[in-house]
Nucleic acid binder design. Structure first.
Lengths: 171, 171
DNA sequence: TATTGTTATACTCTATAACTATA
DNA sequence: TATAGTTATAGAGTATAACAATA
């Protein structure tokens, strides 16, 4: 991607080239990283990144309702139902009614689910170490943690997307 | 996601909690950011992020071959053909044979394509400013740029993914 | 033979809307 | 009425393999 220098952007305050560079480097590096991670998870565990994230959440909590599970994984409810159904069919989780709230579905990780996490995690850590940690000094990694935690929290505080107007796509 | 404290990972050297935090904050923040960006591009330009990236590349270069266009956008050739066909149908690019190499297809951005970029870019910049730049000091943004540029280059130098063994997914 | 690109095909994933059931 | 979740459905996107044409 090149700079937006040759546009008529009216009064829009353009970002400094350094700002743009930070943005591009950030998104591109993470895209590449995620791609490698996806490959590893698929190869060693037969699961997608989303499924791995769900299993990790359940591995910590033991069991969660669908709504609790949806928090943290930006997702539509139906999308989560779809993934949970896949995980259940694979025997990695079970689904059942909640005693506290009859409306809720409790999703619980199975032994096989924990086994899958245990099988996949070492490779996952290896990939992130090789691609991320090895490229960054301990000091910089610490800075990165602070910066991106702040960014994450900042975005999380954003008003819900429902505020944004929808337009039909042109194709 | 919680920590992997309760696994038998054998001899695997576990990352420090701070390392994990950096990784999680990084991927989560970028996911959230990309989600907002996608919304904006769709709403104001009717295009996806991938299509925006392709248009940005073409907007700088004027025209590129499919192979050149594929560089930088991690993508299968067929996937690029699919996206290029969509962009062509929408009148944002044209495709034609290359005079230099009869095998190559030259993809060129049209006036309408440039107009779309110009229409979408201000909002794109606004979103990134609101979500990213505003959360980070100038100094930290500069650090972020340096760090992530290094990570990106590091990952780019990785051996091709064909080295990774493929396994069938379990479901 | 290697490279460029397209096509056919199959599959994964995601979102929307309508629906059921409980609070 | 509001909330939790599912289902039906439709569409976008992606990858693989087979293919044609040129270098």
């Amino acid at each position: 991607m090149t700079g937006p220098d040759d546009f008529d952007l009216g009064d829009l305050k353009l970002p400094e080239p350094q700002q743009l560079e930070a943005y591009f480097a950030l998104t591109e590096a993470v895209s590449l990283l995620q791609h490698h991670v996806e490959q590893q998870l698929r190869a060693e565990g037969g699961i997608s990144t989303v499924q791995f994230q769900l299993l990790m959440a359940l591995n910590g909590a033991g069991q969660l309702t669908m709504t609790q599970l949806a928090d943290g994984v930006v997702y539509s409810r139906s999308g989560l139902t779809y993934q949970a159904a896949l995980l259940e069919k694979a025997g990695l989780v079970t689904r059942g009614p909640s005693p506290d709230d009859e409306r809720a579905t409790l999703v619980a990780i199975t032994d096989k689910g924990r086994e899958t996490v245990g099988r996949v995690l070492p490779g996952h850590i290896q990939v992130t170490r090789r691609l991320l940690y090895e490229a960054v000094s301990a000091e910089d990694l610490n800075r990165l943690r602070g910066i991106m935690s702040r960014v994450r929290d900042h975005i999380r505080e954003e008003p819900p997307r429902s505020a944004a107007p929808r337009r039909k796509r042109t194709f």
